[in-house]
Simulated assay, not measured.
Amino acid sequence: MPDHTSPGTLLSELRARPPLVHCITNFVAMNIAANVLLAAGASPAMVHAQEEAGEFAAIAGALTINIGTLSSAWLRGMETAAIAAGQSGKPWVLDPVAHYATGFRRAAVGRLLELGPAVIRGNASEIIALAGGASRGQGVDSRDGVEHAEESARLLARVHGAIVAVTGAVDFVTDGERAVRIEGGSALMLQVTALGCSLTCLVGAFLAVRPDAPFEATVAALATFAVAGETAASKAHGPGSFSWRFLDALAALDASLLDRQARLRCA
């Protein structure tokens, strides 16, 4: 029997019914995140003003919130959107970028966590710190290995009832009980700004397609990113050529190729 939750199946569903994804992301990420969603087959909208964020979240398929370039005005828009998403039954993703760096960020993430994200995606240092551990992160850079964040991710998932995705050399996704590791991608991805932020938006796109299966949707998004990254890196000469090749690889990826090349391991 076919696997109705395989990454390829979910990618086909995404392209058959392109979801509108409400992305509240940072200044650095807006362009690349929008292009990533378009290449995957989704429809991006970068809406952050408090005056319209709630109304827009209610009509979108999913919401993603990234605190990379945080401000008080943007935080009000984030909270308004998250509340509206919850009230209208729309799932949302939290990307707690460098949340440990300042008191403002720590307080902001604490308030957003109370609003019930369906998925939390971050690097290892962000996830360790979010679970109350001591991380070695500095700014937006992770100085901890994904393997060191796995137990923190499981704890965070159980406490908040969310899927937690830790991204790095080998990604890790858990709901607190089940867990999957995703191999692939390329070291060149670390040299292209905001690709991780773009991945958060892609998780939102898959989540919009399968809001009832957030674990499988998150795994599918990370597998899609990993396969496209590996494909792009095979012909790239550096981060510049990798960047456009990544978008091309993402756009060219189909369901059968994704399921053949995705390297998933139960953890």
Rank of each mutant, 00 (worst) to 15 (best):
R17G: 04
R17D: 14
P18I: 10
P18S: 13
P18T: 13
P19L: 05
L20R: 02
V21N: 09
H22E: 02
T25L: 04
T25A: 04
M30N: 00
A33Y: 01
A34M: 01
L38P: 02
L38Q: 10
A40R: 08
G41V: 11
G41L: 13
P44H: 11
A49E: 15
G54T: 13
E55N: 12
F56R: 09
A58N: 05
A58T: 12
A62D: 12
L63W: 10
I67M: 06
G68P: 04
T69S: 14
L70G: 08
A73W: 10
A73D: 13
L75V: 03
L75Y: 06
G77D: 09
M78S: 11
M78P: 08
E79G: 03
E79N: 02
T80A: 15
A84R: 13
P91S: 12
P91H: 09
W92F: 14
D95Y: 04
D95W: 05
H99Y: 05
Y100M: 10
G103H: 02
R105P: 06
A107L: 12
L112W: 04
L112A: 11
E114M: 08
E114W: 00
L115S: 06
L115C: 08
V119P: 09
R121W: 05
G122T: 04
N123I: 00
N123M: 01
A124V: 06
I127L: 09
A129Q: 11
G132S: 09
G132M: 09
G133K: 02
S135H: 10
G139C: 06
G139S: 04
D141A: 13
D141C: 00
S142N: 00
D144S: 09
G145L: 13
G145N: 03
